[in-house]
């Protein structure tokens, strides 16, 4: 059995150098608590679509510190995450993050909050350009793997926005 691997850094197989402007599309969240996992659900939708070679899709899950290398090794990032901002569930919004404080506070189900991670990245060097696409959710639902109907209905819009951003 042969599994295709995509190790980072020097371990990459001898292939042509990646395009200089690789864009990282990172979906984050916890799949085990319902709508909170919308970022990972979005990743799964995007994964089934066709993308230009400079687009790298990653399931960030509840990666915490494990995501720091990805954050520090891309100049351009599109991040997809859930937010509990009081807007109707399924509302898709987008903003350009400049400092750690721009990020929504952790929802409580990610392990290390994004804000903490961005802070860490800022300590190590200049922050990448980060566009954040958020999907509003109403609540965390323990023991639910499926998205609620309004949040699931937002996925095509997320995909459309990612496509616009990657150009």
């Amino acid at each position: 059995m042969v599994v295709s691997l995509h190790p980072g850094g020097q371990a990459a197989p001898a292939a042509p150098a990646p395009p200089p402007a690789e864009v990282l599309v990172l979906g984050v969240g916890n799949l085990l608590v319902g709508d909170e996992g919308v970022g990972v659900h979005a990743f799964r939708v995007l994964e089934r679509e066709t993308w230009p070679p400079h687009v790298r899709l990653v399931d960030g899950g509840t990666g915490g510190f494990h995501l720091l290398d990805l954050l520090c090794s891309h100049a351009r990032i599109i991040l997809i995450d859930a937010t509990r901002d009081g807007a109707p569930p399924g509302t898709v919004a987008q903003f350009r993050a400049r400092v750690a404080a721009d990020f929504p506070p952790a929802l409580g189900a990610h392990d290390i909050g994004l804000r903490d991670l961005i802070t860490a990245a800022a300590l190590l060097g200049p922050l990448p350009e980060i566009d954040v696409i958020t999907v509003s959710i109403a609540e965390l639902k323990p023991m639910t793997l499926e998205l609620s109907a309004p949040v699931a209905a937002a996925l095509p819009e997320v995909s459309r926005r990612v496509r616009t951003l990657v150009g």
């Binding site: 995509h6 980072g8 915490g64 494990h66």
Partner: peptide, 18 residues
Amino acid sequence: WQKEIVKVHTIFGGKNPH
């Protein structure tokens, strides 16, 4: 430094995180 060592997971586990 900690960014580096977890690449062992990517190499043997195909992806990281998870």
